[in-house]
Amino acid sequence: MATPYALTKEATYAIADNLAQASSLVLDLRIRLRTSLSNDEQALLEKHEDHLDMLVSLFRAYGIYLITEDAQQASSELVQAIDKGKARLKRTTDVKAGIDTAARLVDLGAAILSRDPVAVLEAAASLRSKPKKDAAAG
């Protein structure tokens, strides 16, 4: 059986703080694009923001645990991936791209909760990859 790998309290708080900043950027996006958001888009962004806030609370309360030999690599990629998502949220003017990025951040948080480093690595890679619209354009 694989050995659980617990991130230090400092690392856990750094990831939680980074996700809290991402949640704040989702709120900023909702405010910045409010005139072009449909009710459904507004609700979806708010839902993603709420999920990020919930994940932050869980990580701060219980820490972050990953399982298997890939845990060390997964933990080192978390902050980089979250930073990429935050940068995307800051610069986007496209509603769908903003919703997609917020959803990818929630997916990363859920992968962390699953304690599956492979899922964490996949979710982190998803955040680091270009959004579909950017990939098609360049």
Rank of each mutant, 00 (worst) to 15 (best):
M1I: 13
T3Q: 05
T3E: 04
P4E: 09
A6D: 12
L7N: 08
K9M: 02
K9R: 13
E10H: 06
Y13F: 01
Y13A: 02
A14S: 13
I15M: 04
I15E: 05
A16Q: 00
A16M: 02
D17T: 09
D17V: 06
N18R: 09
L19N: 02
L19T: 03
L19P: 03
A20K: 15
Q21W: 09
A22W: 03
S23K: 08
S24C: 05
S24D: 14
S24N: 15
L25Y: 12
L25S: 08
L25A: 05
V26L: 07
L27P: 03
D28W: 11
D28Y: 13
L29T: 15
L29C: 15
I31D: 13
R32M: 10
R32F: 09
R34H: 14
T35A: 13
T35S: 14
S36N: 12
S38E: 05
S38N: 08
S38A: 06
S38R: 06
S38I: 06
E41S: 14
A43S: 14
L45I: 06
L45P: 07
E46N: 14
E46R: 12
H48K: 05
D50G: 06
D50K: 10
D50L: 07
D53Q: 15
D53C: 10
L55K: 02
L55F: 05
V56N: 07
V56R: 07
S57P: 00
S57L: 10
L58Y: 06
F59L: 03
F59C: 02
R60H: 05
A61L: 11
G63Q: 10
G63T: 11
I64Y: 09
L66D: 01
L66K: 04
T68R: 09
T68G: 09
E69F: 00
E69Y: 01
D70C: 00
D70E: 10
D70V: 02
D70M: 09
A71F: 01
Q72V: 12
Q73P: 00
A74Y: 04
S75F: 01
S76T: 09
S76Y: 02
E77M: 07
V79C: 00
A81F: 10
I82Y: 06
D83E: 10
K84N: 13
A87K: 15
L89Q: 08
L89N: 06
L89C: 08
L89K: 08
K90Y: 15
R91P: 03
R91W: 12
R91K: 14
T93F: 14
T93E: 15
T93H: 14
D94G: 03
K96N: 11
K96M: 10
K96R: 13
A97P: 01
G98M: 13
D100C: 02
A102R: 06
A103K: 11
L105K: 05
D107M: 07
L108E: 03
L108S: 03
G109V: 03
A111P: 04
A111M: 04
A111C: 01
L113I: 11
P117C: 04
P117F: 01
V118Q: 15
A119I: 00
A119N: 07
V120M: 00
V120N: 00
L121T: 01
E122K: 08
E122S: 07
A123G: 03
A124K: 03
A124D: 07
A125S: 08
A125N: 11
A125D: 04
L127W: 06
L127I: 04
R128A: 12
R128C: 07
S129V: 03
P131L: 10
K132V: 14
D134N: 11
A137Y: 11
G138L: 12
